[in-house]
Design a protein around this nucleic acid. Structure first.
Lengths: 103, 103
DNA sequence: TAATCATATGAAAAAAAAGTCATATATTTA
DNA sequence: TAAATATATGACTTTTTTTTCATATGATTA
């Protein structure tokens, strides 16, 4: 990991370090959705969803597919799903106190 | 992943979404180090290193061991190392444009 | 036990990221 | 082709995070 990599890592993790984007990713776990559907399910405002989807797409965490006037976003199941699972394992073991809000 | 989890995920990723902390983690890959050594190798100011180490420790990414007046910090090789490797794989495949600075 | 060394902490300043709002663009339908 | 619908974008404001600075704490040594 050289200093260039660290910048990339930072951007990558930064993309995941946000509850709105995590909520979007989570919703996409159940299949691809268009922007409107994501707005409805998250109860987020549309432009915010678009901003966040752009960031997720840029980092390869979701893919887009144009269908007429809609844009369907799909989770990258190959890497993002296992990644979330690995982190689940880490957190089960080391972050109980965080989950409980301890300091 | 419920809304409580998302908060924890956010904190977890937030801890990794920072070049200073990534640099510290990277340096710890070659074995445990005390704060002074980390300062020297990173060229970061001491209090900043301490703040960042605290955050890393709180999230189970490093462990501390007191030895006299020194405190040795050690990387969590069980989860953080494989995590970084998984992300390497993701980035090799999807984030080339990021590494190249494209937009 | 005073001086020194190693590290931690809190508050405040600086920097970065997130969210909002107005509006632009693109596609479709009437 | 005008209106409507879906989504994206840019500039700005707000919020959050990071860094810095001064200082506190704790262990060691002279």
């Amino acid at each position: 990991m050289d200093s260039c990599d660290k910048e990339v890592y930072k951007l990558f993790f930064g993309t995941l370090a946000n509850q709105s984007r995590l909520k979007i990713l989570n919703i996409l776990r159940s299949g691809q959705k268009n922007v409107k559907e994501i707005c409805r399910e998250t109860e987020f405002e549309q432009s915010m969803v678009s901003h966040n989807l752009k960031m997720l797409e840029y980092h390869g965490m979701v893919f887009v597919e144009k269908k007429g006037k809609f844009r369907y976003y799909d989770l990258n199941k190959k890497t993002i799903k296992p990644l979330l699972e690995l982190i689940d394992a880490h957190m089960r073991e080391y972050c109980c106190k965080i989950a409980r809000g301890e300091r």
